[in-house]
Computed example of a mutant assay.
Amino acid sequence: MPRQQITGVILAGGLARRMGGVDKGRQLLNGKPLVEHVAARLGPQVQTLLINANRSQDDYAPLGYRLIEDALPDFPGPLTGLHAALGVTETPFVITAPCDSPYLPLDLVARLYTALQQNDSKVAIATAGGRQHPVFCLCHRDRFDALDHFLRNGGRKVMHWCAENQAVEVDFPEQIDAFRNFNTLNDLKAP
């Protein structure tokens, strides 16, 4: 897999309503911020790693990754993080991962990339345990205009956009727990 063709983006730009509005990526799991767990697992799989953050930039800056903000106002959802990354990347592909999934697969990018190549597709998402995990999305840069149109016309649901773009689903049956996410502060107390 040519990792030099792929930019990773950690999605930390949301409002974290279920977590009481705190900056989710900065919350600690085993003494380390969630975003650092994700960076440690996603970073080696990509050429460049970005963090999509709409607040707390001063807290994220010391990590040393380029920070990008949503280009659209009012926190319209995770697709805007992909949109922001596609708008600035110089690589052909972008992979997204949420900041609250610290156990993401170490072979996530390789398997999604392989599926794209085998299916001659532009978008691939992860599935596991019978559930879709579309925020784990590998997307070709040429999907930027389609995503921009979708978002500017009120589209917000990730699976609707994935369906419109014939996303390939890649199953990780042996790694169901790798997609576990932490939505509340109580979740962080019982990893």
Rank of each mutant, 00 (worst) to 15 (best):
Q27W: 12
L86D: 01
Q132R: 15
L151C: 01
A115H: 02
Q27C: 13
G14D: 05
L104G: 00
N119T: 10
K122G: 06
P73I: 02
P78F: 05
L11F: 05
L185S: 06
L49I: 01
T48N: 12
P33E: 12
V9C: 10
A146D: 07
G31Q: 09
H37V: 09
L72C: 05
I176S: 13
V123N: 03
G154C: 12
E169T: 14
F150I: 09
A97E: 00
Q132T: 11
P134H: 06
Q4H: 13
P44H: 09
C139V: 03
D145F: 04
Y113T: 07
R41Y: 06
L108Y: 03
T184K: 05
V123T: 05
D70A: 11
L49D: 03
P173S: 10
C137E: 07
T89A: 11
Q117W: 11
E36R: 11
M19G: 13
D187E: 07
P105W: 06
H83G: 10
Y103F: 13
K157M: 09
L116M: 12
H160I: 10
H160R: 15
V158N: 01
L42P: 01
I176G: 07
L86E: 01
N119Q: 15
Q132C: 12
Y103M: 10
G154H: 08
I68M: 03
A39V: 01
V109Y: 01
G13F: 06
P98K: 03
D59Y: 14
K32C: 07
Q45C: 02
R3K: 15
G87K: 08
N181P: 06
A71E: 10
L28I: 05
K189V: 09
I10A: 08
L72N: 05
G155E: 08
F75H: 02
R141M: 08
F93T: 04
I95S: 00
L86V: 05
C162A: 15
G154W: 04
G130V: 06
D74C: 11
D74P: 04
G81V: 00
L63F: 11
A53C: 13
A163L: 15
A128S: 09
N153S: 13
K189S: 12
L15N: 15
V168I: 11
S101K: 00
R17W: 10
R66A: 12
